[in-house]
C-alpha cells in the first residue's frame, strides 16, 4: 500500500518539478526586466543560490553538518580572482579554475572532516575556513589581505559580451551558470552516486553492509560540492571584480545554512526559495534601518526554527498531512 502511494508521488513530483523549473527560469528572466535598477543585488542572489545548492548537496543529501562552507566559496573566489589578476581575464576559464580550486580544497579538507561527526565536525569545518582566512590575511602582497583582492579586470564572456557598469552581462552570465549547475545537480542527486549519499544519511552502517565505501563516497560528495561552491565564489569574484576576506568568513557559512534551512533541506529547490526570501528580507531591512536590521534577521531565523523547522518547502506536505488526518 505504501508502495503505490510512493510511486504515484514520484510521478507527481516529476511533473511538479518540471513545472517548478519552468517557473524558476521564467522568474529569473522576468526579474531582469522587472527590477532593472537592482541587477547588482539580483546577481548576488543568483550567486548565493549556487552556494546554497552546494550546501544542500552536502547537508541535505549526505547529511554532513558543516559550518565552514565559506572555505570552499572563498577558495574559489580567491583562485578565480588571482587567476584573473595574474594570468588571464577570461571568465569561463576563471570559472574552471574556481571550480578546480574549490574541489581540491574540499578533497583535502574532506579527508579530515569526513572522519568526524556532530560537534567535532562542526568545529573542524569552522577551523578549516578560519585557517584559510588567516593565510589569505597573512599573504597581503599577493591577496591584498584585509583590503581585499583588487585589480580584477574581466574580459568579455566568450569574447563577445563585455561586463558593463549596470551589471546586465553579469546578471545573464550568473543566471545561465546557475541553471547549468542546477540541472547538473539534479542529474547528480538522481544518480546512484546521489542515492548513495541519501543512503548514507539514513543509515551509514547499512550502506557499509551492502558494500558502499562510505568514507570515500562522502569525500567524493564533499569534493563535488566544493567545486560547485568554488564556481559560486569565482562568479562573485568576476562579477564584483573584488574578493574580500568575508568570502572565507564565518558569517557567510552561517547565512548559507540559514538560507538552506529556511527553504528546506534535500530538495535543491529549497536553495532558491530560502536564498531569495532571506536575501530580500536582509536587503530590505538593511536599507530601511542600516543599524538595527539584525533584529529582523534574528527574529526571522527563530520563527523558522520554531514554527517551520522543515523549511518553507515542507509546508505543503505539512498542510496535506493535517488535511488528511482532519478529513
Amino acid at each position: 500500500m505504501t508502495k503505490s502511494i510512493s510511486t504515484s508521488r514520484v510521478g507527481n513530483n516529476a511533473a511538479m518539478g518540471l513545472a517548478l523549473d519552468v517557473l524558476l527560469i521564467s522568474a529569473g528572466i522576468a526579474a531582469y526586466f522587472l527590477f532593472p535598477d537592482n541587477l547588482g543585488f539580483l546577481t548576488r542572489v543568483l550567486i548565493m543560490i549556487i552556494m546554497v545548492l552546494s550546501l544542500d548537496l552536502v547537508l541535505g543529501y549526505a547529511g554532513i553538518a558543516t559550518l565552514g562552507h565559506a572555505a570552499l566559496f572563498g577558495t574559489g573566489a580567491y583562485a578565480a580572482g588571482l587567476f584573473a589578476v595574474y594570468i588571464s581575464g577570461d571568465p569561463l576559464l576563471g570559472l574552471g579554475v574556481g571550480a578546480a580550486a574549490g574541489g581540491v580544497i574540499a578533497f583535502f579538507s574532506g579527508l579530515i572532516l569526513m572522519r568526524a561527526h556532530g560537534l567535532t565536525l562542526l568545529m573542524l569545518s569552522i577551523a578549516v575556513a578560519q585557517v584559510l582566512q588567516e593565510i589569505v590575511n597573512k599573504e597581503r602582497p599577493v591577496t591584498g589581505g584585509s583590503d581585499g583582492l583588487q585589480g580584477i579586470d574581466m574580459d568579455p564572456v566568450l569574447g563577445i559580451f563585455a561586463f558593463d557598469f549596470f551589471g546586465r552581462t553579469g546578471y545573464w552570465y550568473a543566471l545561465i551558470v546557475l541553471f547549468v549547475v542546477f540541472f547538473f545537480l539534479k542529474i547528480v542527486v538522481a544518480s546512484p552516486f546521489g542515492l548513495a549519499a541519501r543512503g548514507i544519511q539514513e543509515s551509514a552502517p547499512r550502506m557499509r553492509a551492502i558494500g558502499t565505501p562510505v568514507y570515500w563516497r562522502l569525500v567524493g560528495i564533499y569534493t563535488l560540492a566544493g567545486a560547485v561552491a568554488g564556481i559560486a565564489g569565482a562568479l562573485s569574484a568576476q562579477v564584483t571584480e573584488l574578493v574580500s576576506l568575508d568570502a572565507l568568513g564565518f558569517t557567510l557559512s552561517a547565512e548559507a545554512l540559514i538560507m538552506l534551512i529556511l527553504g528546506g533541506l534535500g530538495r535543491l529547490y529549497g536553495a532558491f526559495f530560502g536564498t531569495i526570501i532571506f536575501m530580500t528580507v536582509h536587503h530590505t531591512a538593511a536599507s530601511i534601518d542600516p543599524f538595527n536590521w539584525l533584529f529582523v534577521i534574528g527574529a526571522l531565523v527563530l520563527l523558522v526554527v520554531y514554527f517551520v523547522p522543515e523549511g518553507l518547502l515542507g509546508l505543503p506536505e505539512k498542510l496535506r498531512k493535517h488535511l488528511r488526518w482532519g478529513g
Binding site: L59, A65, L67, G118, L119, L122, A254, L257, I258, I261, L294, F295, I297, G298, A299, L300, V301, L302, V304, V305, Y306, P309
Partner: peptide, 15 residues
C-alpha cells in the same frame, strides 16, 4: 536536532 540548535542559537545571538 543538532542543526536546528545551531540555527536557533544563531538567531538568539543575532537578537
Amino acid at each position: 536536532s543538532e542543526l536546528q540548535q545551531v540555527l536557533a542559537t544563531i538567531g538568539i545571538t543575532f537578537l
